[in-house]
Simulated scan of single mutants.
Amino acid sequence: MITSSTVFEQWATAHQQRAEQALASTLPSADTQPERLHAAMRYAVLGGGKRVRALLSYAAAELVGAPASSADAAAVAVELIHAFSLVHDDMPCMDDDDLRRGKPSCHKQFGDATALLVGDALQALAFQCIADTHAPQALKQVQILAQATGSRGMCGGQDIDLHSTGKRLSRDALETMHQYKTGALIRAAALLGAYAAGQTEEKHLTLLNQYSQNMGLAFQVVDDILDATADTHTLGKTAGKDALQEKSTYVSLLGIDEAKALVTTLYEQTLQSLAGFDQQADSLRGIARFICERPF
Results as ranks from 00 to 15, higher is better:
A60H: 13
A75F: 11
P28K: 05
S248R: 03
Q245P: 00
N209T: 15
G240I: 07
C106N: 12
F219V: 01
A194C: 14
Q16G: 00
E20Q: 05
G65W: 12
H233R: 11
G166N: 00
L46Q: 01
A197P: 10
L271V: 10
A73K: 04
G47W: 06
H204F: 15
L254R: 02
L56D: 10
R42F: 11
D172H: 13
A131K: 05
G102L: 11
F127A: 03
L139P: 00
L27W: 07
E35C: 15
A74L: 12
T3C: 00
M41N: 03
D89T: 10
D224V: 11
S69V: 14
A40Y: 01
T234N: 08
K167M: 02
Q128I: 02
W11Q: 04
R53H: 08
H178P: 07
D120V: 06
L86K: 08
R168M: 12
L139H: 00
P28F: 09
L46R: 00
V7Y: 02
A113P: 05
G166D: 06
A73Q: 07
Q10C: 05
P104Q: 06
D231M: 01
A173P: 00
L284A: 04
T149V: 12
K260R: 15
G166M: 03
Q213K: 09
T238M: 13
A184S: 15
D132I: 01
H38F: 09
